[in-house]
């Protein structure tokens, strides 16, 4: 089970790359969602046990996957969604003020 981890790393790096190099504000926010998704995937992955069942114990199961990372993943999803929403609201505001989505135009604050 190494491939999923590699995928997580690729997604994470891709997200970071998007954030630091793309000029479009919406692209940057998309980058953040990619990073966040990769982290959630990582959480689910580390909780997974081969041939385990979901942590809903209506019967007695042999192997049950770790419930804690799933709970953490839920929290992370919610937090990520909220942060994305705030970011997008700010993006809209910025577009109204500056008339552009280019990061390089946000230069009223400097020095």
């Amino acid at each position: 089970m190494v491939i999923p981890y590699v995928v997580v790393i690729i997604l994470f790096s891709l997200g970071i790359y998007t954030v630091i190099s793309k000029k479009n504000l919406i692209k940057m926010v998309i980058g953040f969602t990619i990073v966040e998704s990769s982290l959630i995937l990582l959480l689910i992955l580390i909780g997974y046990k081969p041939s385990g069942t979901a942590p809903i114990l209506d019967r007695q199961y042999e192997i049950v996957v770790d419930p804690i990372p799933q709970a953490l993943a839920l929290t992370t999803i919610i937090i990520g969604g909220s942060v994305t929403a705030v970011m997008l609201a700010l993006v809209i505001k910025i577009y109204k003020r500056y008339g552009t989505l280019n990061v390089d135009e946000l230069r009223k604050l400097r020095g």
């Binding site: 942590p55 809903i56 419930p67 804690i68 799933q70 709970a71 839920l74 929290t75």
Partner: peptide, 13 residues
């Protein structure tokens, strides 16, 4: 709670 994720979310943590 049967759903352990719920029990983690609403009780343990």
């Amino acid at each position: 709670a049967i759903n352990l994720v719920t029990s983690v979310l609403y009780d343990y943590r």
